[in-house]
Amino acid sequence: MNTVAEAASIDAHGDSLWLKALHKFRRDRVGMWSLGVVSAYALVALGVVLGWWANDWAAVTGPKWAPMSAQYWFGTNIIGQDIFARALYGTRTAFEVGLIVALGATLLGAVLGAVAGFFSGTFIDEMVIWIMGVLDSVPFILLVAAIAYSLQGSPWAMHVAMIATFWITTARLVRGEVIKLKGLEFVEAARAIGVSKPLIIFRHILPNTLHILLVQATISFVAAIKSEVILSFLGLGVKEGMSWGLMISESTFEVLAGFFNNFIAASILMFGLVMAFNLFSDALQDALDPRTVSRP
């Protein structure tokens, strides 16, 4: 496999890995399109945060199960709340959950993975591997329930639980990469001139794993949104506000009565974001892969 170090070197055209990736990405039509969709969602979420729309998502104003109309774009739910407003608010929750979990899991995974990889074979490495194995084996729902309880039902319990499980994949990948990297010459050189270990890890090695981290972050984002649906359905998820998972769980008994709006609204919005993000993640991965050739 081509090494990262090789790709990171400046080539004849003066492009680093990142610029190359950017070029490649720009050419990927599917990638650009999906980025556009994700940005649109992000804008919606931002708007909710800034209060531009969906402020009255909790207001009980309409009749029970009103059909789609000019006033209620998606109709109303069983107590008369505007489904469209709730779905918009759900976008904000999705981004909140996704971003926090993606950031947290990636950071945690990067740090622990790098430390384990750098000190591979030693006790520190064994400890980290052991922790990863332990967390992997504890049933996810047990972990979420326990964390929710210990945090006294705080709304962040779900995020903490997800971060506590999602970091593991990232850490494994980073660890593998770091093990490969630390045998390279530039690390040897750094050590030779006396750079301290933490500095080596964080300033020299870790940045070379950024491509892994980026892709893993996007994967975690998607996984977080999808897990939230199931967790909210089980009652262990979102506590305040509204989310797509809550809407879907609310709709599980409505759909058999022939009222699908709640279900469709949340499902479509969620599917749109997740699909776009997945495609974006793919395109990102392709762009960052030093082996796919691009024309300058």
Binding site: V222, K226, V229, I230, F233, I248, S249, T252, V255, F263, S267, M270, F271, V274, M275, N278, L279, D282
Partner: peptide, 14 residues
């Protein structure tokens, strides 16, 4: 495959 990955299991079951 991307579609399959983007739909929630719960939705599929129902």
């Amino acid at each position: 495959a991307a579609v399959g990955m983007s739909i929630s299991f719960l939705i599929v079951i129902i």
